[in-house]
């Protein structure tokens, strides 16, 4: 086993990630406008951008989900307890002592256990919460005639905003954690170039070399 720089993020993977970044930032910005946190943009334009971007993001998610399941990429995100203690201890203590990150990335598991658990929660709870409440919010015109329509709208609106802030909190922590270890630029680069240092067995190395996916 040795660390090599291998192409782990396919073109679709990177496109998925960065268009998600762009969309979510636009959604934060326009959503904050709709909530009344800033006055930049007219309300109508904010509604329009928020709606169109959200629908585009939903479409992207549909593609990404399909891609994750057909390529088996979803396995990256299955949470597991193995190594959880070490990683948790590192972030809570070791990182202040200058210890090395205890997790060594493999090709099959590029996320550490804590990271995998966080992504799992994001994908299984926060994202569904935001898009289900968002679609219910958006389709208000179809169900507002029901009894208590306005009451349910208020519930949905509160839920949607809460879910949005939860995702925003995830983004804060996500971006902050990139500064730990080899530094921010080092951590962002793989998602740009696609290449990342992972542990490879000699067999895997030979296979990836044959495919031209190993940089060094």
């Amino acid at each position: 086993m040795a660390e090599h720089c291998v192409k782990v993020y396919s073109r679709f993977n990177r496109l998925w990630h960065w268009s998600q970044v762009g969309s979510i930032m636009l959604l934060f910005f326009t959503g904050a406008r709709l909530l009344g946190l800033h006055p930049i943009l007219p309300f109508g334009a904010a509604v329009l951008i928020h709606t169109v971007v959200a629908l585009a993001l939903l479409l992207l998610w549909a593609f990404a989900t399909f891609w994750l399941f057909t390529t088996g990429g979803y396995k990256q995100f299955i949470p597991r307890m193995q190594g959880m203690w070490e990683v948790s201890r590192f972030y809570a203590y070791g990182v202040f002592k200058g210890e090395e990150h205890p997790y060594v990335k493999s090709y099959e598991r590029r996320h550490n256990p804590l990271q995998a658990a966080a992504y799992f929660a994001l994908k299984m709870m926060l994202f569904p919460a935001i898009w289900i409440s968002g679609l219910a919010y958006l389709s208000y015109g179809f169900w507002d005639h029901l009894d208590g329509g306005s009451f349910w709208l208020e519930i949905i609106a509160n839920f949607h905003v809460l879910a949005a802030f939860a995702i925003a909190s995830f983004v804060v922590v996500h971006v902050y954690l990139l500064t730990i270890g080899h530094g921010f630029r080092q951590h962002v680069r793989p998602m740009v170039s696609g290449y990342e240092k992972v542990d490879l067995t000699p067999e895997a190395e030979a296979y990836f070399r044959q495919q031209g996916r190993v940089l060094d």
């Binding site: 709709l34 909530l35 709208l153 509160n158 905003v161 939860a166």
Partner: peptide, 14 residues
Amino acid sequence: YVPGSEINLGGKLG
């Protein structure tokens, strides 16, 4: 319920 007319409870908690 008029969206944007107040920072609602979800917004405050969030």
